[in-house]
């Protein structure tokens, strides 16, 4: 197995497997099939693949109509255009009637890289989680991405799946358990908790390694389901450790950090530091350069953990 894989790559592969078993599965794209990786499905099942052209709003509207007719619809484009441009269609035509559409959006976050701010969705989680009944998934690696897509297709109702462009390290074994709404205790610890989502889970693991070397006991929780969020695992961490560092490749306004703070503020007030994009737009650059520029690295997480413990 490759030690690195883009989550969009895993998505494209599992889609073809799902298509073989589910004749009611329909896939749509908006002229980005070679980037979102729906291209595999389009070749395997051309009769059930619809390229809607560069028209994201209509794509999600048509997806709603297909879903209302009994189809399980997976509709892909970049996260920016799915959740931004088509927000109101997703809200009114998919969310409000609670239709079975899976919004599998790729190229989320600043690791889109060179394309720059116009293509870097850093508010998609915030937008999607405000829609009643919307399930929001943000897998951390190729293995969990594959399982997230399987789980999304298996459940009834609208789901947002956040996927990335860049190849990222494989974090999980193939036999990992992925259950929607259930956070994963990646590593137990007693001093401080890092709650990470998406590609930041790997940064959290690196950060924990550095901290453990200094004698700090770190708990890591992977919140792959931003909504419905696993309150139990968060409340437990808030009570059992001295504070929480949230880590997301997304704006700290409305994303994982906000979601965790909502839970702890109501149930177990905790000291929280938020690693994420601090009310800024993205920019062009290499993914690793951007991770450093926006303070999204393991070293930034280490620093935040130390501030909690200071």
């Amino acid at each position: 197995m490759a030690d690195k894989q883009a989550t969009r790559q895993a998505y494209g592969e599992v889609l073809v497997e799902l298509g073989a078993n589910n004749k009611d599965l329909v896939v749509m794209d908006a002229d980005l099939s070679k980037s979102t990786m729906t291209v595999g499905f389009s070749k395997a099942f051309p009769e059930r693949f619809f390229n809607m052209g560069i028209a994201e709003q209509n794509m999600y509207g048509v997806a709603a109509g297909l879903a209302a007719s009994g189809k399980t619809v997976v509709a892909s484009t970049f996260a920016m255009f799915a959740t931004g441009r088509a927000f109101e269609i997703i809200r009114n035509s998919i969310g409000y009637p609670h239709l079975n559409v899976k919004i599998c959006a790729t190229h989320a976050g600043v690791t889109v890289g060179e394309d720059g701010a116009s293509h870097q969705a850093i508010e998609d989680i915030a937008l999607m989680r405000t829609i009643p009944g919307m399930t929001v998934l943000n897998p951390s690696d190729g293995v969990s991405a594959r399982k997230a897509v399987e789980a999304a297709v298996a459940m009834d109702g609208p789901v947002y799946v956040r996927l990335g462009r860049a190849a990222v390290p494989i974090v999980y074994d193939e036999d990992m358990d992925f259950e929607i709404g259930k956070g994963i205790l990646v590593k137990d610890g007693t001093d401080v908790t890092i709650v990470a989502t998406g590609i930041m889970v790997n940064e959290a693991i690196q950060a924990a390694g550095m901290l453990e070397a200094e004698g700090v006991s770190v708990r890591i929780i992977d919140i792959h389901t931003i909504k419905p969020i696993d309150e139990e695992i968060l409340i437990k961490a808030a009570k059992e450790t001295k504070g929480i560092v949230t880590a997301e490749e997304h704006s700290v306004i409305g994303g994982l950090g906000s979601a965790v703070a909502e839970v702890t503020a109501k149930n177990a007030p905790a000291k929280i530091k938020m690693i994420g994009i601090q009310d800024r737009f993205g920019q062009s650059g290499k993914p690793n350069q951007l991770m450093a520029e926006y303070n999204l690295t393991a070293a930034d997480i280490v620093k935040a953990c130390k501030e909690i413990l200071a």
């Binding site: 619809f50 709603a64 109509g65 007719s69 269609i89 009114n92």
Partner: peptide, 16 residues
């Protein structure tokens, strides 16, 4: 209710 959207969904129903 949000104008234009019903038209898109009808296209989806016809496609189905």
């Amino acid at each position: 209710g949000s104008l234009g959207q019903g038209f898109s969904t009808a296209v989806g129903m016809a496609l189905a």
